[in-house]
């Protein structure tokens, strides 16, 4: 590190060269953000808003469309509450819903590893069919590739989706106003714990089930209610904390969250305590947050509670200030939440 000679003397550990992709780049946290900011956005974005939200929104011949894509590399492929197939359909459906769009058509691309079981492929495809039907979308086109044994981890899935915007006003972090309430659609942490427990054979007798589900219906109910919906964001990898940080930073706002208001189910709580992980950062696949004007908060909550009684108001957007931060109110006061580097690993320490 020639830029600061103080370091060369003090710190004997080699600084990571940073010229190869690491697992942490896929974690949805800081390194993922770096990849987007340093490689993808300079190449592809034509305006500051490009590549900032879950989906892209644009107009073609008078029709306002939303378009999104997502790839799925989950291991294990099958886990309690879902599998890579249902994940792939619901993930893309939900990204469209978060733009305020009615999801309509999906494509699916499969990369299969030589030797992958055809029975498993049937299971995945059947799961995708079921998920598409539940979400009210159609899988209309697709592609399949096969790679040599040892190069593919079994199966990778990509889905892309297109939908029609259902609201005349934009729904995005840029619409967030000071005073907006933040309403969470249900308890957090189920998916990440379910997958980790299955993958690492943690030996939990109690099966924690993923919350993988389409969010089309609750979002439609919110849109139909008529109040001004400012922003929607589904919680995926990196958990509630990451979604909040991304909104705060995109908008340039301070978000205040009351930790005691965030619902966590008992088994997820127990699992997080045993593993030493923070539920705020654990992945979800069937939960979202809505940022709405303060006077619409109770109405929004009542609507979401019809779909999941665990829905709760967890905080508010406060002042507009750059850089945006998320302040968590805990026992001893307030602390800022930061993006994780990679996925949380269970600890004994």
């Amino acid at each position: 590190m020639s830029e600061n000679s103080l370091f060369a003397l003090n710190c004997p550990l080699p600084v990571t060269a940073g010229d190869t992709i690491e697992l942490a780049h896929g974690g949805g946290g800081l390194l993922t953000r770096r990849l987007i900011d340093e490689i993808f956005r300079p190449a592809f974005a034509e305006s500051p808003d490009d590549l900032t939200h879950d989906g892209a929104v644009f107009e073609i011949a008078g029709a306002r469309l939303a378009f999104t894509t997502d790839s799925y590399v989950v291991r294990p492929l099958f886990f309690p509450g879902g599998d890579i197939g249902s994940l792939a359909v619901n993930g893309t459906v939900n990204d469209l819903a978060m733009c305020g769009a009615e999801p309509l058509y999906l494509s699916v691309g499969l990369v299969l590893e030589e030797g992958f079981s055809i029975d498993d492929l049937r299971r995945v495809v059947e799961a995708m069919r079921g998920a598409a039907r539940s979400a009210g979308v159609r899988l209309v086109t697709g592609d399949t590739k096969v790679v040599e044994r040892g190069r593919g981890d079994g199966l990778y899935v990509n889905t892309s989706g297109v939908g029609l915007l259902a609201t005349p006003w934009p729904i995005s972090p840029r619409q967030v106003q000071p005073g907006d309430a933040i309403v969470l659609s249900g308890d957090i942490g189920r998916h990440g714990i379910a997958v980790m427990a299955a993958r690492e054979a943690l030996g939990f007798e109690t099966v924690v089930t993923s919350d993988c589900a389409p969010l089309v219906s609750p979002v439609r109910a919110l849109i139909d209610s008529g109040f001004e919906l400012h922003c929607l964001r589904d919680l995926t990898r990196g958990g509630l904390a990451t979604a909040l940080i991304e909104i705060a930073e995109t908008r340039g706002a301070t978000i205040r969250i009351d930790e005691s208001a965030v619902p966590v189910s008992d088994p997820v709580r127990g699992a997080c305590e045993i593993l030493g992980v923070d539920p705020l950062y654990v992945a979800n696949e069937g939960r979202f947050i809505a940022l709405v004007p303060a006077d619409a908060a109770e109405q929004c909550l009542a609507i979401l509670q019809r779909f999941n009684e665990g829905a709760a108001i967890i905080g508010r957007a406060d002042v507009l200030a750059s850089p945006g931060i998320v302040c968590l109110d805990t026992i001893g006061g307030t602390r800022a939440l930061d993006l994780l580097i990679g996925e949380q690993l269970p600890r004994i320490c």
Partner: peptide, 11 residues
């Protein structure tokens, strides 16, 4: 022993 932690049971 089977030990219960707030709904999770682990040996």
């Amino acid at each position: 022993g089977r030990v219960g932690f707030a709904g999770i049971v682990k040996r």
